[in-house]
């Protein structure tokens, strides 16, 4: 059974000059599920993610969140609507503690971010939210460690914790397992399995085993074009997909 559609694109395009980074992309992302996006390098996966989180403005097409068109709003307003984004390169505040990283992320929810006289440590609720996010990803024991001093894998977890601390309904994750060892990847896969019970997750990932294991829906992209969308088995047996991948000789499914 499919869950309600949370996020939707209609004919989404992004051109850089004459280059069609993304062309006519129409997709639906459902609640409580993982929607995997795969494709060779340069297929437009990151462009799609950047459009979905508001970092880029589309050349044409629409983005609908809960049925409302949001392609024209500012990037920071996407987060306020519950669209959270994790980055491909670890993108944290390295000089402060893990807890503080999550406090920064969660503070928008408790408000007062423009209050210049309200002490930053005044809210127990904020601390609770931040701690909860850390615990969700299994970093509870690292709360007081400076973020630059935890391992790379843990930093990737912290990255996800920060997105969770913004209380999103949609998680856009850009290669959360990039550069990780097998053990660490397992940890993230288990984490995402847990998270997909509550969130709509859009997952761009190169690790095919992980994508097949996690995805409810899978979209294959090539050269900015939509190739095929379906459940894992459909995609796996699709002749166009085989051709695209074998033809490019990039990765083998």
């Amino acid at each position: 059974m499919t869950h309600a559609t949370v996020l939707q694109t209609e004919g989404l395009c992004k051109y850089w000059g004459g280059v069609k980074a993304l062309d006519n992309m129409s997709l639906s992302f459902h609640d409580k599920s993982v929607h995997g996006i795969v494709g060779p390098n340069g297929a437009g996966k990151s462009t799609l993610l950047n459009l979905l989180c508001g970092s880029y403005k589309p050349t044409a097409g629409r983005i609908l969140h809960q049925g409302e068109a949001i392609e024209d709003i500012r990037a920071y307003q996407f987060v306020r609507r519950g669209i959270g984004r994790g980055f491909q390169k670890t993108n944290i505040y390295p000089q402060v503690t893990c807890l503080e990283n999550c406090c920064i992320a969660a503070q928008r929810r408790v408000g007062g971010s423009f209050n210049i006289l309200l002490s930053k440590n005044s809210s127990a609720l904020l601390k609770e939210m931040a701690e909860q996010a850390l615990q969700q990803v299994g970093l509870g024991s690292r709360r007081d460690t400076i973020a630059s001093q935890i391992s790379y894998g843990e930093q990737r977890q912290l990255e996800i914790a920060m997105v969770l601390a913004t209380a999103p309904s949609v998680l856009l994750l850009d290669e959360p397992m990039a550069g990780m060892g097998h053990e660490e990847s397992r940890l993230i896969i288990e984490l995402l399995k847990k998270l997909k019970q509550d969130y709509c997750i859009v997952l761009v990932e190169h690790d095919m085993d992980a994508v097949f294991e996690l995805s409810d829906q899978l979209t294959v992209m090539v050269n900015g074009q939509h190739l095929v969308t379906g459940c894992v088995d459909e995609v796996r047996n699709n002749s166009k997909v085989k051709e695209a991948y074998l033809g490019q000789g990039d990765e083998v499914i």
Partner: peptide, 9 residues
């Protein structure tokens, strides 16, 4: 200011 919520952000 630097110790406030504003300062954090």
């Amino acid at each position: 200011v630097t110790g406030s919520r504003f300062g954090r952000i």
